[in-house]
Computed example of a mutant assay.
Amino acid sequence: MTTLIYLAAFIIIALAIFYILGYGYLFNGISKTYLRGKMSANIDDGKFFSANLIATESPVLWEEDPDYNTKELPENITDNLTLSDTASFIVIKDGKLLHEQYWKGYHALSATNSFSMAKAVTVMLLGKAMEEGKVKSIDDPFSDYFEEFKNKKFAEQLTLRNLAQMESGLDWDEDYKNPFLPNARAYYGRSLMKATFSRKFKQNPGESFEYQSGSTQLLGFAVRKAVRQSLASYLSEKF
């Protein structure tokens, strides 16, 4: 009985320490990965998170090419797709659907996570906001939208261009496996803004390119503030 009490006390103290140190998100991550037989985030995670619908009043299907699905993919390509755990592969030629193929039970109506495809869409939304005059310039200082960055080392000169081009100088290790690094905190934590705004900068913006989800997240917050609505609703209206 005494042993169980000590064990329970140890677990409670350990949990408290994790939360105090800011690692409480790990328990959410574990429930969505390891306990489901996964090693990291995957394309079927969407159902575990809240979401904003991106709708369209008049969807247009891809026009099929006359040679649609008449040829099989070369064996070396299918081998690579299978090895990379691909769910779907689509070929568009001259604006028409030439080939589509699915694996592992996925099909044309499967809904999966978009992941980094959203990076390009976020930059497209920046362009639309500029076109509408809601963002004055791609060279707007990020601190025009969030004043606290004026007092952040290396971030005083950060611009929307730096974020869009991933030359922000943000201290963000783009690692998808390590649960203690920024991507996991942003993905499984309760506040995406807190996860990104808490990061420091390691060098001046514009000095070098580094692929980072954090840079796009910061850009998205600026665009959202400029258009005064969620990115999902803005995308639904404008694209």
Rank of each mutant, 00 (worst) to 15 (best):
T2W: 12
T3E: 12
I11L: 14
I11C: 14
L15A: 09
A16H: 05
A16M: 08
I17P: 03
Y23C: 01
Y25T: 06
N28C: 05
K32G: 03
L35H: 03
L35R: 12
L35P: 08
G37L: 10
G37S: 10
N42L: 02
D45R: 06
G46E: 08
G46R: 04
I54E: 00
E63V: 13
T70V: 14
T70L: 15
K71G: 07
T78M: 08
T78N: 13
D79H: 13
L83C: 01
S84T: 13
V91H: 02
K96Q: 15
L98N: 05
Q101I: 14
K104Q: 09
S110W: 12
S116G: 07
A118Y: 02
A120T: 15
A120G: 14
M124P: 00
K128I: 15
K128Q: 12
V135W: 06
I138E: 11
E148G: 01
K150L: 00
K150Y: 01
Q157K: 12
L158W: 06
L158S: 03
L163S: 08
M166Y: 13
E167T: 15
L170A: 05
W172K: 06
N178K: 09
P179M: 11
L181D: 13
P182Y: 11
P182W: 11
A184G: 04
A186M: 15
Y187M: 01
R190L: 04
T196P: 00
S198G: 13
F201C: 02
F201E: 02
K202C: 06
N204A: 09
P205S: 02
F209K: 00
E210A: 09
Q212S: 13
T216V: 15
Q217E: 05
L219K: 11
G220F: 02
R224F: 00
R228Y: 01
A232Q: 01
S236C: 13
